[in-house]
Design a protein around this nucleic acid. Structure first.
Lengths: 330, 330
DNA sequence: TCCCCGTTTGACAACGATGTCACGATCACG
DNA sequence: CGTGATCGTGACATCGTTGTCAAACGGGGA
């Protein structure tokens, strides 16, 4: 900037005025400065500008999601981006992979970078560590999982209800031997889905067979192996409830490999783009990702704009989408 | 920082030393400073730090992709993230949606923010506008599309070859009436795929019927409608080559709706997570996204680390994955 | 002609941090 | 006990920018 000023024969402040399109600079000076800017490849430095202005807004928000490459996380990211776009805010995105340490490190990094707000799908169990930042005014919106130990906005779905929908649906189609495939019970949503499953089975007076409740499945491959084992047992299940989309995928693969596709009922949790064209079309518990994302973005930007009303916890209801795989009878 | 210094009874510089874990501070002073930091909720400001240090590294890279929510873009993003993670670099991600204006605006925003490097899947046709930034040393790596008007690293696949693989495969299975579904020909990759299709048809001495070459399809819905029209014609195609994954999805939906699934051959371009379990399993031209992402990340960080060798243009070969849908005979 | 006023421009300090260098204290050694 | 080396600490300028305030300028009216 100093060089631009020298070349244009004006003061630093005048260059600043031109760069910021402030009024009250003569047309002649403006062109001189702009010429100098072009000639020297000068680039305005936003960091320095923000520093001086002091108000702090960096026009960056952080989005810490489970895994950017999965469709749920990336759809949320996209919803946030659509809202951010209108306000010229950019998004710093990262995957947590269910690693608490990574979450803490990334939050710290983003706070040091002075992001204006944070979208968090936490990998940690307790969130007290965020208290200081929240107190100092950093807007944080939780998504998919609720805050624990601090109070801040969240947008989640009713996971237990989703499980209940699935179980009641399968029971209504005549099933009693229903297997459950779930992720690590340390993950809040996975736990809620498991609890919902158990409660629904109780509510329908079906005894829980622990050998048919498989948790800690982390990948489609895990699920595929689990289903193979389940179907090889003495009393194989007639229906499977896969409480996460990647587990449903593994289950489908296993059913295909064993030639049982179309014979065993299957309900997945979380819709995904092609669930309607797999074989058989997959019945799922759908969470409306667009609605979640829009709600999250709206909350976050409202907070950034100074909304200081009490934290709100939005809980959306998932719905059952019948497509075929869940309507197979035993 | 000033307040921390005052509270701890030391100078600014000493606080800086403690915060940066520099050696040569007595244990006593370190604890006093750390206590003060905790008490005042002090947060180190990275922007100011970078400003002063001058070397410029912000430990941020930009990733401008086509659409963060599609699986190709988000997988690339994830590959980049894996590489960035080791170096404590964060990623600013955005979708361009094939809008040139948006690309230019985002690049400018990222340059102003002084990102250390840029991953770009361009929406623009010409890239001269990047010349200044490249000259001033900003590393930019193109992915999926080659730079035009400037010379910088790129990682792409051989799209024409992909189309050729698809056509030869279908012809080998007895097809001659092959329809082509493509995106906007203004998009470089879409154009290359179309050209590859035409060249391959010529090479096999099959006359091109323009009514079976449909371009400018932007969504699964567009593709679905196009396929419906194609199949309603007098001489419907016996095979379809869908030159983008979302178009293949639309084609599958149409075939299902019309009850023709399993009767018309279909080859898609771009693999996607569930292509093996749709009905029938989809034969695709696969680009190895992991390999592309790894290559891109490696190039980008090498440049950031000061590699000034001439720009390299890596072209990876796609491969045909037979799964069933492409092996249906007329 | 003189004065006042609006317009355009510039000098300076400050945003939060750190590299440089110099200072005082402590220590080992002959 | 003096000397030089070593260690811990602080003063100051500086990174790139902008808010504040005042100066310089030109023009219009009395």
């Amino acid at each position: 900037m100093r060089e631009v000023a020298a070349l244009a024969g004006v003061s630093l402040k005048t260059v600043s005025r031109v760069v910021n399109r402030e009024s009250g600079v003569s047309a002649d000076v403006v062109t001189r400065v702009e010429r100098a800017v072009a000639q020297l490849d000068y680039r305005h430095n936003l960091a320095a500008s923000n520093l001086r202005r002091g108000h702090g807004k960096t026009a960056m928000v952080g989005a810490l999601l489970q895994d950017i490459s999965n469709s749920f996380s990336s759809s949320l990211l996209r919803s946030l981006e659509d809202a951010a776009r209108d306000r010229d805010v950019v998004i710093v995105a990262a995957s947590l992979d269910e690693e608490p340490e990574r979450e803490r490190a990334l939050v710290e990094g983003l706070v040091r970078r002075r992001v204006d707000g944070l979208l968090l799908m936490p990998a940690t169990e307790r969130h007290d560590y965020l208290a200081d930042d929240l107190r100092s005014g950093l807007p944080i919106v939780f998504v998919d999982r609720r805050p624990n130990g601090v109070d801040t906005d969240s947008v989640t779905i009713d996971n237990a209800r989703g499980s209940r929908l699935a179980v009641y649906h399968l029971v209504a189609h005549g099933h009693r031997r229903i297997a459950f495939l779930g992720d690590l019970p340390t993950i809040q949503t996975a736990r809620n889905r498991l609890e919902g499953f158990e409660a629904a089975m109780r509510a329908r007076h079906i005894p829980l067979d622990p050998s048919r409740v498989i948790t800690s499945l982390r990948s489609p491959e895990d699920a595929e192996a689990a289903v193979s084992r389940l179907l090889a047992s003495d009393e194989p299940p007639t229906a499977i409830f896969a409480a996460r989309n990647s587990l449903a995928v593994g289950a489908i693969r296993a059913l295909h490999r064993l030639g049982k596709a179309g014979q065993i009922a299957l309900v997945g949790f979380d819709d995904f783009p092609l669930a309607d064209i797999v074989d058989p079309p997959l019945t799922v518990i759908r969470q409306n990702v667009g609605a979640i994302g829009a709600e999250v973005a709206q909350r976050l930007f409202a907070r950034i704009d100074g909304d200081t009303s009490p934290p709100r916890h939005v809980v959306l209801a998932p719905e059952l989408v019948e497509r075929g795989s869940g309507e197979i009878r035993p």
